[in-house]
Design a protein around this nucleic acid. Structure first.
Lengths: 296, 296
DNA sequence: TCATATATCTGACTTTAGTCAGGTAACTGC
DNA sequence: GCAGTTACCTGACTAAAGTCAGATATATGA
């Protein structure tokens, strides 16, 4: 890995330096790029404007003054426009101007061109192999750098995760859950419960919670972003939740799920969960599991 | 690829920032590392000392003043020692001191540790997949960034390549070639010939030449570093040599090789070469080939 | 032997990248 | 409605990274 870093950065990293070539220093170009990305209709939420904060967290917690200054630069060059967020006057909405989009496309084009040039000497087969290798490496590195954090269930990230969780359940099972129905379950908070979020680049990609139920621990709200399934994230989260259950003083964990979620059921079984009889009155659940935790 | 760069650098690139953690700024640490690398008995030529120039080219053509200053810093910290090169008084030999080696090992250790930490959340199987993917990507990127250049046969790189070529032939076929026997073949020079070197990180990894022989073009000195075989480098070099033959006004290329070199023979056949009768009196050759070049 | 080229060094300079310590206006919870 | 937070901004600062224009000593070719 280290070897790869050295050699890759020396070759291709220098390439990304041409990230500039646009007359913009690297940091500034990065911000421009990030603003443009947010406007791209890739994710479901394709709002052409972002907040300053969003940019900061997506770029890994840059200093607010630093970002502010760079935004000022971009603004003075006419690449971005800012305005007060009507929803919260402290925030500023940032969006690319027409010129900014031109710059953004330019960055893309230049970068594309550079990649093409680099790959030119390779045969098509080699190129395919390289792309595949990079895609694999990317997924795994992303998976490895996911952070697991306990948050309050009312935290915006938690809300987003639960929103998607319920939306998906609704989609798959043909019912809708009231928008506000999951907002504030106090059992998922300390001292007797906990809610965890797995985040990548500041966006939630998985969630899960433990709470007390009927004298044992119960796992709730297990959800993994569809794009991230199969990366071992669920199992990792599960281990984390079990450790938390142990910490909360429980020796037994139970959970319910639904027959249609066969991947989840497989995961629970692989993790040592045993099928048991119905232990609650959840109308959506069809399968019930239980596991005895080993002492740490 | 661009996607990978963005995401990888954001995660792991920041990792390599800890390349410092040693109190040395990144640039300086890079130089220390490079000097240490040169001393490592990885390559056949494991001279504990390098020249300033070597460092500069290996790091991609840094400014000489910049490097000089960093060397001064390293020297003042007691990590490197320099001396006049007895072979050429303009040059300076640079080597790590004992303390310098300690620092170098520290960098290695720290970097290793960091990689371990990063990979920790992955399952062993995932880790293996990642390593494999990175190794593949590394090889291909290296292959893609090789430079093909015409040099004079007396150029040190050319000399090194031919030296290894003859050494290998000698090894494999049980005879030795006089050290000075290949030094100066004027037929491999313009106007009627050309010698090409494929280099990676300033080290020759493949060589090949065209010359005129008996009214047609002849390819000579085809050699690919054993570590690089199978990466399509030979075929690429061959295409290049054919283009050069064409440029020199030839329509036909011939070459000889030896039965034991089955990979080479396969490559020539795949490239459209046809077996012909002996056309010269090279005692080491057993196979003879010919190809008619298409107009560009 | 002399003109020219090469390898390195020194000094003066610029641009990036980033940190830190406040400041201001807007929101939030009690 | 007010204390405390939050989101963003400004100014002052630093260190790193790199560029450029000579200077110096050594080698090389005619």
């Amino acid at each position: 890995m280290r070897k790869f870093n050295m050699s890759y950065v020396r070759r291709v990293g220098a390439l990304e330096d041409s990230f500039l070539g646009s007359g913009l220093p690297y940091g500034t170009a990065r911000i421009l790029y990030e603003i443009g990305l947010a406007a791209q209709p890739i994710s479901s939420a394709a709002d052409p404007a972002t907040t300053v904060q969003e940019i900061r967290t997506r770029l890994g917690g840059l200093d607010s003054g630093y970002v502010s200054r760079m935004l000022r630069t971009l603004e003075s060059k006419g690449y971005v426009a800012t305005e007060r967020d009507p929803a919260d006057g402290r925030r500023r909405l940032v969006r690319l101007t027409e010129d900014g989009f031109k710059q953004w496309d330019d960055l893309e084009r230049r970068s594309e061109e550079h990649a093409r040039l680099l790959l030119d000497p390779l045969t098509p087969r080699q190129r395919d192999r390289l792309n595949e290798a990079l895609a694999t490496a990317d997924l795994l590195v992303r998976a490895a750098t996911i952070t697991l954090e306990r948050v309050d269930p009312s935290d915006p990230m938690a809300q987003e995760a639960m929103g998607r969780y319920f939306a998906e359940i609704g989609d798959r099972f043909g019912f809708t859950v009231g928008d506000e129905g999951f907002g504030d379950d106090p059992t998922l908070r300390p001292p007797n419960g906990a809610f965890f979020i797995a985040a990548s680049d500041g966006a939630p990609v998985a969630s899960g919670a433990v709470r007390e139920f009927d004298g044992t621990a119960e796992i709730k709200r297990m959800w993994v972003d569809p794009a991230w399934r199969g990366a071992g994230l669920g199992a990792r989260l599960l281990r984390h939740l079990e450790a938390e259950a142990l910490r909360l003083g429980h020796r037994v964990v139970r959970l319910d799920t639904r027959d249609v979620l066969s991947e989840a059921i497989g995961m629970y079984e692989r993790a040592g969960y045993q099928r048991i009889d119905r232990y609650n009155d959840n109308p959506h659940a069809t399968h019930f599991f239980r596991k005895e935790l080993a002492q740490a």
